[in-house]
Simulated scan of single mutants.
Amino acid sequence: MRGPVVVTLQNEASPWGISTSVVLHALFAAILALMPIPKRTNRPEEERVSVDILTPQQFEASTRPPPAPAAPVAPKARAAEPPPASGPPRPQPHSAPAMIRPTEMLSAKTLADPRSRQARADLATFASDERMVQLCNLEAMDQIRRWRADFQPEQVVPYATAEEKITGTTIAANGAAFRSRRNWYGLKFRCQLAHDGESVVGFGFLVGDPVAREKWDELGLPAVH
């Protein structure tokens, strides 16, 4: 390590040395007086910068990326107005009429009458499905007769326009027809029999329009002479 530099002053002075020093100083002063004063250099003015002092919270906030601009909200689409009607409104389709569902079954009472002895004997000779169909045909004639006195049903064809369907002890005849007063009428019925198939326990029916006479032969509906 370098040590400090020690400067030693000399206090002894001779008369010649003093006079010589005075002369030199006077000469140096004269020279300086004669020299032109140097011009001040125009230093460019320093650009001033404004400085803001921020807290740590302010600095953190300033360095966060700017939030993404919110997506513009699309205007709600207006419901399309129905076009003006170009003609009269179309008629709405009518719902199918409900079936008539009587609460009392009538075929058992009819067969119990002494006058139905032959009918009972004939039913005993039929196969199970055919016997159930004939029981339902009889129930249909009895129920139609009670429903409207002006009808006098005397025969039912359960397969006039469509085959009847037998499911277990349920028979659905959507294309049946019955004859009354020498005319044929459309008929639809649903017949529910007991588990043994020997009696009707539930029935519903719907009478349709008269069947055109020119269709009788086509549908197998016998004319009455």
Rank of each mutant, 00 (worst) to 15 (best):
148 R>E: 15
98 A>H: 12
145 R>H: 08
114 P>M: 08
153 P>G: 01
148 R>P: 02
146 R>Q: 13
184 W>C: 08
129 D>F: 00
176 A>G: 10
113 D>Y: 02
185 Y>H: 12
98 A>M: 12
169 T>H: 15
185 Y>C: 03
143 Q>W: 07
145 R>C: 01
136 C>S: 03
110 T>N: 02
164 E>Q: 05
91 P>C: 00
127 A>D: 15
148 R>A: 12
146 R>K: 14
152 Q>R: 15
109 K>I: 05
97 P>K: 09
125 T>M: 12
103 T>A: 15
103 T>K: 13
149 A>R: 15
95 S>A: 13
131 R>H: 12
155 Q>K: 03
147 W>T: 04
137 N>D: 04
119 A>T: 09
141 M>P: 01
91 P>L: 07
119 A>N: 10
140 A>Y: 02
116 S>N: 06
164 E>W: 04
85 A>G: 06
178 F>L: 05
140 A>L: 05
120 R>V: 11
179 R>Q: 13
117 R>L: 11
96 A>Q: 15
107 S>K: 02
155 Q>E: 04
145 R>V: 00
129 D>M: 01
133 V>C: 04
148 R>I: 02
153 P>L: 03
177 A>L: 03
89 P>I: 03
110 T>V: 10
87 G>Q: 12
174 N>F: 09
178 F>V: 03
88 P>T: 08
177 A>P: 00
107 S>H: 05
134 Q>M: 08
106 L>A: 04
147 W>S: 13
131 R>T: 05
160 A>Y: 07
179 R>P: 05
174 N>W: 08
170 T>V: 15
171 I>W: 02
122 D>V: 07
141 M>W: 00
120 R>W: 06
108 A>T: 14
101 R>I: 07
113 D>H: 11
131 R>Y: 03
165 K>R: 14
169 T>Y: 04
160 A>N: 09
96 A>L: 14
167 T>R: 13
164 E>K: 01
137 N>M: 06
163 E>W: 11
178 F>E: 01
126 F>G: 00
116 S>I: 00
164 E>D: 04
182 R>L: 09
175 G>H: 07
172 A>C: 07
112 A>Q: 12
119 A>M: 10
131 R>S: 10
152 Q>V: 13
84 P>L: 13
107 S>W: 03
179 R>C: 11
155 Q>L: 10
165 K>C: 05
114 P>C: 08
155 Q>V: 01
92 Q>P: 04
112 A>Y: 01
164 E>L: 14
145 R>S: 11
94 H>G: 09
110 T>W: 09
160 A>G: 09
88 P>H: 01
139 E>P: 00
185 Y>R: 06
127 A>F: 05
142 D>K: 01
86 S>F: 06
94 H>D: 11
177 A>D: 02
184 W>D: 09
95 S>Q: 11
88 P>Y: 03
99 M>Q: 13
159 Y>S: 14
162 A>K: 14
169 T>F: 05
185 Y>F: 15
84 P>E: 12
146 R>S: 10
142 D>Q: 09
96 A>D: 13
94 H>L: 13
135 L>R: 00
